[in-house]
Amino acid sequence: MAASTTATPQRIALLAFPGVRAFDVSVINEVWGVDRTDRGVPPFELRRAAADHAPVPMRGGLSLTPDRTLAWLRRADLVVVPGLDDHLTPAPSPVLDALRHAHDRGTPIAALCGGAFTLAQAGLLDGRRAITHWSLTHLLREHHPRVTVVPDALFLHDGNIWTSAGTAAGIDLCLHLVRITHGAEAAATIARSMVTAPFRTGTQAQFIEHPTPRADRDADALAAVRDYALAHLAEPHTVASLAARAGMSPRSFARHFQATSGTTPLHWLIAQRVAAAQKLLELTDHPIPEVARRTGFGSEVTMRQHFAGHLATSPRDYRTAFRQQTGSSPIAR
């Protein structure tokens, strides 16, 4: 079902200044700058906001042409800050002032990778938890000691400020921001068009090693188990049953699963069930107990407990809020 093109687009400000990373700029543009309304994704208005309209130089001979000044941040529903090529580059004073004013207005702000350094320069991370690329955590601690640097996560939020780890974790954060604003199906549609994973939890480890060919073989076996579990979410899965499918002992399976995915088998399974339940709540009018059954929770009570832990809401309230926000009606009945 195509999204309504008459809906008011969410306004996204890409904050541009010399030194921003081209990769992060591309991620932001790919998530919010491509029109996918014909595939059911809501409309976005992405603007490149800078101190003036002069081209912003980036590494590799690239440049970014702003189409709005920093004053446009007053209209933005979300401000996204790319990472930096030189993570200690001082941001221009007008940029820092614009970020402070946006924060004072209550506008959500998200920083990808080394963009956390820009937020820290603005003082927005003082006394807050934040994450950046695993190789930069020591620099963030050293240069901004008032920031509580979390050593190992993909993304996190503290209040209305979001930060992410490096490179691919920026994609995860951007998709998560779509998910919490427009629903799991919209985020999954964008992920499919980008040929990337539709859902990785922010608490997964950001640095995962594959040191030997044996580890790669184990990763293949585990990938097959994950595919099976996703295709059969309604079935009762345990670590022992999944381990048997991978041809491993439960202890070995749990150890290898965490080494290759950054989370435990049960935490991963619950997160996938929550994501699947979100889609059913968005796209169907199935009763809550039926959604719980189809996604493997077994009971409405169990699903409600996990929704509270993952989304800080109940399944019923999630469905109501999603439909009020999007004005959508169920597709399948």
Score class of each variant (00 low, 15 high):
300 E>V: 07
278 Q>P: 01
217 R>S: 08
138 H>E: 15
221 A>D: 12
94 P>T: 12
1 M>F: 07
332 A>R: 14
227 D>P: 00
52 D>H: 06
29 N>L: 07
197 A>L: 10
135 S>L: 06
65 T>R: 15
119 L>W: 05
148 T>L: 12
91 A>W: 05
34 V>H: 09
139 L>T: 10
115 G>P: 04
119 L>M: 04
20 V>Q: 01
24 D>V: 04
77 D>T: 03
295 T>E: 03
316 R>E: 15
312 A>E: 13
333 R>G: 11
39 R>Q: 14
102 A>D: 08
301 V>F: 10
98 A>Y: 08
320 T>H: 13
156 L>P: 08
58 M>S: 12
23 F>N: 05
18 P>V: 03
210 H>W: 01
105 R>F: 02
141 R>Y: 04
138 H>Q: 14
164 S>H: 08
117 F>Y: 09
217 R>W: 06
53 H>R: 13
247 G>Q: 01
288 I>M: 03
88 L>A: 15
304 R>D: 09
145 P>F: 08
285 D>K: 01
221 A>W: 02
116 A>V: 00
75 R>E: 15
272 Q>I: 07
264 T>H: 07
265 P>E: 02
254 A>V: 10
195 V>S: 12
230 L>G: 01
132 T>D: 01
39 R>I: 05
244 A>M: 11
92 P>M: 10
276 A>E: 05
69 T>A: 04
61 G>A: 12
297 F>A: 03
165 A>V: 06
297 F>Y: 04
184 A>V: 01
129 R>P: 01
56 V>T: 07
246 A>H: 01
218 D>V: 11
230 L>C: 07
266 L>R: 12
204 Q>L: 13
178 V>Y: 04
33 G>W: 05
167 T>C: 14
96 L>W: 07
63 S>P: 04
174 C>E: 06
91 A>S: 14
288 I>P: 00
90 P>T: 05
211 P>T: 07
156 L>S: 04
138 H>C: 00
126 D>G: 09
203 T>H: 13
101 H>K: 14
200 R>F: 06
33 G>I: 06
39 R>G: 00
225 V>T: 11
250 P>E: 09
177 L>S: 06
28 I>F: 05
32 W>T: 00
265 P>S: 06
116 A>L: 03
98 A>I: 07
207 F>E: 05
127 G>T: 05
140 L>Q: 06
159 G>F: 10
100 R>D: 05
240 A>Q: 15
208 I>A: 00
14 L>G: 06
15 L>T: 06
49 A>E: 00
150 V>M: 11
294 R>M: 04
298 G>H: 02
260 T>D: 12
184 A>G: 02
251 R>L: 11
35 D>K: 01
220 D>K: 12
253 F>E: 09
328 S>I: 02
94 P>A: 10
76 A>K: 12
81 V>Y: 13
309 G>Q: 12
273 R>L: 03
113 C>W: 01
249 S>G: 15
279 K>I: 14
214 R>D: 11
77 D>I: 08
91 A>P: 09
61 G>Q: 08
33 G>T: 05
127 G>W: 03
191 A>Y: 10
3 A>Q: 03
219 A>I: 00
325 Q>M: 08
203 T>E: 13
19 G>E: 08
71 A>S: 15
156 L>I: 11
36 R>T: 01
231 A>K: 11
159 G>P: 09
323 R>Q: 14
130 A>K: 02
124 L>M: 02
332 A>G: 12
58 M>Q: 14
175 L>W: 00
16 A>K: 02
264 T>Y: 04
85 D>W: 10
64 L>P: 10
259 A>I: 03
